[in-house]
Computed example of a mutant assay.
Amino acid sequence: MTKHIVWDWNGTLFHDIHAVVEATNAVFEPHGLAPYDVEGFRAVYSRPIWAAYERMLGRSLLDGEWERLDFEFHEHYHRLMPECGLAADALSTLRSWEESGGGQSLLSMWAHDRLVPKVTELGIARRFLRIDGLLAGFGSRKAESMVAHLAALGVDPADVLVIGDSLDDAHAAQHVGARAVLYSGGVTGRAALATCGVPVVDTLADALDHA
């Protein structure tokens, strides 16, 4: 039985797929790449992201190129992000789980100092027992962050359901012994999500059916 849900942010609770695609197109336009639409982007997206960039370019990245492309992406993304908001059923789903008596927290690989103000701005910070984003100087693997997140909460991984839009979310759940549900509204295509062997849903509300 699930007692606690760990939510992902970007692409899950926060509906930012269009900003991600537009930022990616802006980065690669000078390289002569045709713009992607959402489904085209999902078809080429994978992690690590540098490997996806190599597929887009059709060549290996040059020394220092990954860092430059990543910086440019985030510059464009943060310019476009104010146009984004919560997923259509995010608020009602958070409220429903809270009213059922379950606990919930937020774990993101987005910068902590940007994550917390955005969650607060959107009026949902109080619904989480803990909010963790990526801190400077720490590793960027979600599995490692999940270990620290659950330890800080003091919850048993066996009682936890992780809900996210990426294979990394499922891998992080498996790493700690939690369960996972993957949501198709983010950056990863549904077919790729289905390869992970966990339930895949098209709405956040449907994810609660697996809690």
Rank of each mutant, 00 (worst) to 15 (best):
T2F: 08
I5G: 00
V6T: 15
W7K: 06
W7P: 02
W7G: 04
W9L: 01
N10W: 07
L13A: 00
F14Y: 14
F14D: 00
F14L: 06
D16G: 07
D16N: 13
I17E: 00
H18I: 06
H18C: 06
A19Y: 01
V21E: 00
E22C: 06
A23Q: 05
P30N: 10
P30T: 11
P30D: 11
L33W: 02
A34C: 00
P35K: 13
Y36D: 12
D37N: 13
V38L: 15
F41Q: 01
R42P: 00
R42L: 04
A43P: 01
A43C: 04
R47G: 08
P48F: 12
P48K: 14
I49A: 10
Y53C: 03
Y53D: 07
R55W: 04
M56W: 09
G58Q: 08
R59K: 07
R59H: 05
D63R: 10
E65R: 03
E67R: 14
R68T: 07
L69K: 06
L69R: 02
D70K: 10
E75L: 09
E75V: 12
E75C: 08
H76Y: 15
H78Q: 13
M81F: 11
M81R: 15
E83L: 12
G85R: 09
L86T: 09
L86W: 08
L86K: 07
A87N: 01
D89F: 13
S92G: 01
L94V: 09
R95L: 12
W97S: 04
W97E: 01
S100F: 07
G101W: 09
G103T: 15
Q104T: 14
S105N: 05
A111E: 14
R114T: 04
V116Y: 02
P117Y: 12
P117L: 14
P117W: 14
K118N: 13
V119Q: 02
T120K: 08
L122I: 10
G123A: 12
A125V: 12
A125L: 10
F128P: 01
F128Q: 07
R130H: 15
D132A: 12
D132S: 11
D132H: 11
L134K: 07
L134P: 00
A136E: 15
R141D: 10
K142H: 08
A143N: 09
E144N: 14
E144K: 13
E144V: 14
S145P: 01
M146W: 08
V147G: 09
V147W: 03
A148M: 14
H149S: 05
L150G: 02
A151N: 13
A151T: 11
A152L: 09
L153I: 11
L153C: 07
V155K: 09
P157W: 11
A158L: 09
D159E: 15
L161V: 03
D165I: 04
S166P: 03
D168V: 03
H171M: 11
A172E: 06
A172Y: 06
A173C: 06
H175N: 14
V176M: 11
A178E: 11
A180R: 05
A180F: 05
G186H: 03
G186F: 03
V187S: 02
T188E: 08
T188C: 06
R190S: 08
R190G: 04
A194Y: 02
T195G: 12
T195W: 12
C196L: 14
G197F: 10
G197E: 14
T203H: 02
A205P: 02
D206Q: 12
D206L: 01
A207I: 01
D209S: 15
A211K: 04
